[in-house]
Design a protein around this nucleic acid. Sequence first.
RNA 1: GGGCGAUUAGCUCAGUUGGUUAGAGCGCAGCGUUGACAUCGCUGAGGUCGUAGGUUCAAAUCCUACAUCGCCCACCA
Length: 892
Amino acid sequence: MKDMPKAYDPKEVEAPLYQMWMDKGYFKPRIDPDKTPFCIIMPPPNVTGELHLGHALTATMEDLLIRWHRMLGDPALWIPGVDHAGIATQNVVEREIAKEGVSRHDLGREKFVERVWQWVGHVRSRISVQHMRLGVSCDWDREVFTMDEGPQLAVRTTFKHLFDDGLIYRGERITNWCPRCTTALSDLEVDHQETAGSLWYVKYPLLDDEGNPTDEFIRVATTRPETIVGDTAVAVNPEDDRWKDLIGRTALLPVIERPIPIVGDEAVETEFGTGAVKVTPGHDPTDFEIGGRHDLPVIVAMDDEAKMNEQAGPYDGVDRFETRKLILADLEKLGLLEKKEDHTSSVGHCSRCDTIVEPIVSNQWFVKTGPLAKPAIEAVKDGRIEITPRRFEDVYMHWMENIRDWCISRQLWWGHRIPVWYCIADGCEEMFASIEDPDQCPNCGSGEIEQDPNVLDTWFSSALWPHSTLGWPEDSEDLRYWHPTSVLETGYDILFFWVARMIMSGLYNTGEVPFRHVYLHGLIRDEKGDKMTKSRGNVVDPLEIVDKFGTDAVRFTMATGGAPGNDFRLFDEKLEGGRNFANKVWNAARYFVQSASEQSVQLPDAATLSSAAGRSDWPLEDRWIVSRTLSVSREVNRLLGDFQANEAGRLLYDFFWSEYADWYVEMAKVRLKEGDTSPLPVLAYTLQTSLRLLHPIMPFVTEAIWQHLRDHIDGLEEALIVAAYPTGDGETDSDAEEQTELVMDVVRAIRNIRAERGVEPGRFIEAYVASKSAGPTLEGTRPLVEALARVRPLHLVPDTTSAPSDGVASAVLSEAQVVIPLAGLIDAEAEREKLSKQLAEDAGEIKRLEGKLANEQFRSKAPAEVIAKEQEKLAAAGSRADGLRARIAELG
RNA sequence: GGGCGAUUAGCUCAGUUGGUUAGAGCGCAGCGUUGACAUCGCUGAGGUCGUAGGUUCAAAUCCUACAUCGCCCACCA
């Protein structure tokens, strides 16, 4: 506790501090009816494996908000959770057992699901450890799994309500089918990829009225000849002069030799292909609709692995792509393949396994989304839910307004089983939904009932997350207090998958919005800007960079890496910046601890601190840093409230490093080196305020320092995690800020001359600083200028007449002039050149400003304060120019 | 086919209600180490804010086109 090592070592402090926070129960909020709760439900990571950087970003942003609110005194609840991730997890476990040479069918449903549960147990603990390493201050006792009893009940209750309300239905519809996962998918689970392919022109012979062959043909164009076997019509646009006379006639399907009608349908584009399209209602969404309009039969010609079935005649049992080759060859032989063109089209791939999706008609369950979408649209429109960045509201609206029914059944084994039972007793065909497992048919009383074998889309349970984690469907105290939750924070890539559906089901189940704010963060990419994916092999384990740079470095980099909602690239150089900052904070604190030595420093009293008048007799630099601390505190709160963590982080970085460490601490040293301990209270004040401000972003280094500081500063709370967050209440002091800026400018000007003239760094030099207006300020800070610029003696004079003019270097500020005798180092010509260059710049500036101020339009239309500002700038530039001219004249 | 985002210093990025001479980190150049920090300090170089118009007293910021890159949505076989 006594010694602070020279370099901040995250490994030393992180684990014990996290343990301490847990042991003290700081992550667990108390319900306080008099306070405004702040609640975030963590997006549950999939139990498919490890966390990735996206999760680290989520954890960082949410923990930042939670810690901020906790310090503000709000009851702050953060519920962690894990998602069973139906299809994804099933795939992962299938791959696992495949290593043992076993398929899920070998095991059977029950055994397989057992294996998945084993996997879940293993992965969950790994995920928790990763989260803890990131410093998340969530309430671990409330961790929820989507397959837990509570969420199970919520799922069944929701299903039952929707079912009874007629908002869930079952039907033979065309859906996206993954032949590898052998399940239906929702539209969102299909990735469309532009793929180069071919467009084949095929001739279908026409039959006459008696059904006899003719020598006429109708020519169709298709990208998928293998589906010819499922054709049940040819469609043409009824306006198309080339073809419209054929409507009502019959064509003969090649190879299969099935007569099919020619129908007229508006959906057919006359521009594309031949203007005639083969209609395959069983294997194409558009064709399914055309089929519906013309009452065409639906032929499904493939099995669930996309091999052709008995409907495909000669191709029975053959894979779909093999069939394509065979059928093309057959058409060629028959002389019916007219030509082939290159054609790129977008081909759907399974988002889980990348297999080409097959549209297939099958019996699936759907949520009727229209009635649910309406209130969800309203909630965003009327501002009950705000989405940040704002542009995503439009994206949300567009999707919602064009929403299509949601296919929720999956032919999987892992997931929430659909709570629907069928009576298989003779003569009874009852189908019913139930929350509890039923033991008999409510219609006929028979015990011969079977549950639907399918499971629900994973996102069905995720959609209930904000209320199901708080106890719904029970009317729990948690639900009443914490719901609606405050912020839903996640990546913009799951706006539709998750956010939109939570809003719909939240409103449906609870009548309330599930959350007030949606904050969507960007995606983390690698150094080249590529998305991190397993197949690219550029995935980074968060623990890897946490081990290398420390959690705070990772969090700082995540929080400040980019603007809200924008993607950003992550690489080591950025993380080094974060690590260096943590080290900087550590060392600045270390300096304070050393300076305070054995004594425990008393912070300035609150009343004095908060009033500028109360501070008026303090040294200028003390007044300055306190004023700056107040404005920075205010600004940080404002930015965090606007979800601009990036700007808040940058502001704190600049404030702490440039203003506190580089300037204030260096100024404080001037007194401290004389044995004057008067800066200690202000050092203590600024340091501990900075730590409070920084804690939500960098919890470990700040808490570690805090625990050291408690021995050196009086009255600090027992732990920073529960200390009060500074809000910047108190008067700032613009006079002190301006005067300090002047002092810093003078110091910089002298340093600049020294560097340019090659004066040895250690050497003290004589300098003249001339100023009428700033005389008293400079007099009051004489020791600072002397020490920081290494000047001795320092002559403070009203004007430069008393300064030497030969062999001097000079700098001209608007309020002061610096003259440094450096005989021997000065080239008069170079000096004149330098000053003239500056004068030219100032002259340009003056000209610009004068023009602007002379402009009648500007004077009449611009706000007074803008005009005043421009006048000030002009005065400053004028004053600089006068000074420069005088200096140049003195050079002779 | 619609929509969105990006385009600012060599690199990575900020710049959120239009108003300083456009900023930071890294990199680069020069100088510097007997106690906070070389994971550092000091000084400096470096940008006509993608292009072309427009609105305005005032544009990196608002509008319109265009270009390049990326993403999302969409049933053109």
